[in-house]
Design a protein around this nucleic acid. Structure first.
Lengths: 240, 240
DNA sequence: GCTGGTCTATTTATATGATTAAACGGAATC
DNA sequence: GATTCCGTTTAATCATATAAATAGACCAGC
């Protein structure tokens, strides 16, 4: 308990010892802390972090459920290859994006967005009910307000994109809500000149209009333009 | 040769008591067993399944990590709303698809495939290396063999689609490999007349050719045609 | 020397108990 | 009526013991 290794308590994530350890180990794993050194045994983890074996085991089990670890008797606990990590777990994605900040990973995530969000916009144009449309319009209104300096640009942008994913009516597309929010929020440090620009406002408005007009093709195209714009800006950052 | 990802005992289900309980509870949750009745307490779970509290707690922690449960002192453990389930966890998806067999869910998953796989095919046409191309060709060769009755049609179909996702070079697209495999394998009972048909062979060949020719647009279009075909067949099943 | 089995040490897996902390209902209080 | 306080319930945590699994050392037999 006099171990100063886990003094980061009190943070929002440190809801309890298990979640604190989960977060700590998750970060360590994605930053490659155990690429050269073997993953500690239960006893070592417990001692290093000053917690009981129960806490250690439950944190390890959660990391196992997220695909980061595997544990076998006598062999010990070891980090799984990246291919088996569940990148669509919000915790895992956050750890990955927060680690060093990988522009490559952000670019790859936006390749995914380029596939997902236009399709979601098209579905939304077909299937959105009144409530979903209202949320999209509310999101856009916030972006307009942000443009006038009356709201937060990032929050407004996120709200708009999440509203469209929700309006798709497809639970698999809705699943990306948390991931997109995480990615946008985590990457703000790097791309804060990108989101919330005036240029975006027109493009977002075009998406909103197309969905309200029940025009899937136009909605898809307009959303593709937004993501394409973001991707080219990331490519610029990458080059220069 | 036979890369048995699943150990003899049904893929880690009966690997130990914790995984057994995890699977059992996961199925119960997605089938709605606790929609009316409250989720049991630790002590009740332990007693009902004849296992120790350690096993119970660790299984609950894994289900928590997958977004199915939440636990708080005094309030007990309770099932989370479906919106917070991690549908991109292979276990969760399998439980969902196996439960009753939901055609709606299968249709929605194929809406996702319609967004993902054409984009992956386009990326593959741009980025695939020699090894990735070889895997795609091997997958197609297996489909041809299956058409002659010399291989399993489902396995061949899965191998082909997974090879393209891998060839995209994007870890987020690769993430869908396990999910697509799970969905195809689980839905075979329902759609076994769909996969492995002769008509598919030409469409799959077109995708392969386009990727080998480094033609992203054509690869995307050809893949979209395949998924579109599957979707219309599901729609038929649904109607009739 | 090689082959095959056994034995042992190590580590996770499981069981069990006791204690602590958090959340909530409701009684007591103002 | 709102607030404070207390008791109950339950998960959270700690601690310890035993079981199971297995990698690697060891050993017998040929």
């Amino acid at each position: 308990m006099d171990s100063d290794a886990d003094d980061g308590r009190g943070g929002g994530l440190g809801r309890n010892l298990t979640y604190g350890l989960l977060d700590h180990l998750g970060r360590q794993i994605v930053t490659g802390a155990f690429e050269t050194t073997p993953f500690p045994t239960e006893a070592e983890l417990s001692e290093q972090h000053g917690v009981s074996r129960s806490v250690t085991r439950e944190a390890v089990k959660m990391l196992t459920a997220k695909g980061l670890l595997t544990a076998r008797p006598r062999q010990g606990t070891s980090v799984q290859p990246v291919a088996s990590w569940n990148l669509f777990d919000a915790d895992v994605l956050r750890w990955l994006l927060e680690r060093k900040f990988s522009v490559d990973l952000l670019a790859q995530f936006n390749q995914l967005r380029a596939a997902i969000e236009p399709a979601a916009a098209a579905l939304a144009a077909e299937a959105a009910d009144a409530r979903a449309l209202a949320l999209i319009e509310a999101g856009f209104a916030r972006m307009e307000a942000a443009d006038r300096g009356e709201d937060d640009g990032l929050d407004a942008d996120i709200a708009f994109h999440l509203a469209i994913l929700r309006a798709s009516g497809n639970p698999f597309f809705m699943q990306f809500r948390e991931l997109v929010a995480t990615a946008l929020r985590t990457s703000i440090r790097f791309t804060n000149r990108i989101v919330g620009r005036t240029a975006d406002l027109a493009a977002h408005g075009a998406v909103k209009e197309a969905i309200c007009a029940r025009d899937p093709a136009r909605a898809q195209q307009a959303m593709a333009a937004i993501i394409g714009d973001v991707m080219s800006l990331i490519a610029e950052q990458r080059a220069g």
